[in-house]
Simulated scan of single mutants.
Amino acid sequence: MLISLAASASPASTHSGAAENSNYAVQQHYPLGGTGGWDYLSLDPASHHLFIARDDRVMVVDTQSGKLLTEISGMQHAHGVALAPGKHRGYVSNGHGNNVSVIDLDTLKSLSNIAISGQNPDAIIYDSASDHVLAMNGRSNNISVIDPTAGKEIATIALPGKPEFAVSDGKGNVFINIEDKNQIVHIDTHANKLLHAWPLTACDSPSGLAFDAASQRLFSVCDNQKMAVTDASNGRQVAQIAIGKGPDAVAFDPQTKLIFSSNGEGSLSVVREDDADHYTALADVATQKSARTLSLDPTTHQLFLVASDPAPRGTPVSGFTLLVAGRH
């Protein structure tokens, strides 16, 4: 494993560049309200619609105004929304329903449910290369492969452990963090086959995952306050960077070459890709405690996070708010 000098900097030195280098800060707070937990956020930059998986519904927010446009009901512990704008469709993973809801991206209405054999679908993505939707099943340790045209599950792919987030390269390769085995796996979506399982050394419980297509680098965020960088072509781990506590999502901006980790402690770790194997931790930007998931608009370079008021575990969510971070 290669650790760059920037990646191995002490926590104190990661703050030395801080705001003057990253220039990111939370600029807007939009109260959305409502009860219930939340999970992944998905953004359609063309329509400026942000989809928030919110337990029994999907909230749809206009990112330009911060206004709640509608709530798509009928979900069963929704985890994520995979967007296929070319099809005018979205696909929602229902963890308690063991199915995937199909939504119309134009009318913002629910159309149907697709039953799957997997248990507790969590992360979900659309793979343009195969024209399939892939649901990562957290309890059955496999992937449900859905043909959206046929409207049914057509295959399952066994995994070595519990899948977390996944990314597609658009060329028939999908990569998935395996949370309980500290691994990242490589799937061939044309053959629906597991090709590789690579160790994520010194990365505990990897969750969020992002991808840089140009450098072929994968970015996994880990519970032990690390971001692990992996070569997607061979599984080589090339760097580890210190990040904040409680990360659950990560995004890569291909234009600015910045990587963002949203951390439940209330911070946004900003990391710069200097080249394919070297990375500099720029800053930990203050957000809000519980703001652990995010989505990036690659056209405006804004980041969208959600959080709620502090409350004892098990009590109802209150003060649910959309945070918008950007350069200042």
Rank of each mutant, 00 (worst) to 15 (best):
L105Y: 00
Q119F: 15
I103R: 03
G95H: 03
D55I: 14
L111W: 00
G118Q: 03
D106L: 15
S110Q: 07
G86H: 10
V61Q: 04
N99F: 10
N98T: 07
H79Y: 15
H77S: 13
K67A: 14
D39W: 03
R57G: 12
D62Q: 09
V102I: 07
G90N: 08
H48D: 15
A46F: 11
N113H: 14
L83G: 01
S112W: 10
L108G: 00
L43P: 00
T63Y: 04
A82F: 05
K67N: 08
H77C: 12
G86W: 02
G97V: 06
V60C: 08
N94M: 10
A78Y: 01
R54V: 15
S112R: 12
L68W: 03
A84V: 04
S93W: 04
G95S: 09
T70A: 12
G74K: 04
I103D: 01
Y40K: 07
M59V: 10
A115Q: 11
E71M: 14
G90S: 09
V100I: 13
V102P: 01
R89L: 14
V100S: 01
L41Y: 02
L69N: 07
L43G: 02
D62H: 04
R89M: 15
H88A: 12
M75A: 04
I116Q: 04
H48M: 10
A84T: 05
Q64V: 11
H79Q: 13
S110V: 14
A82T: 01
V58Q: 06
D39C: 07
S110A: 14
G66A: 07
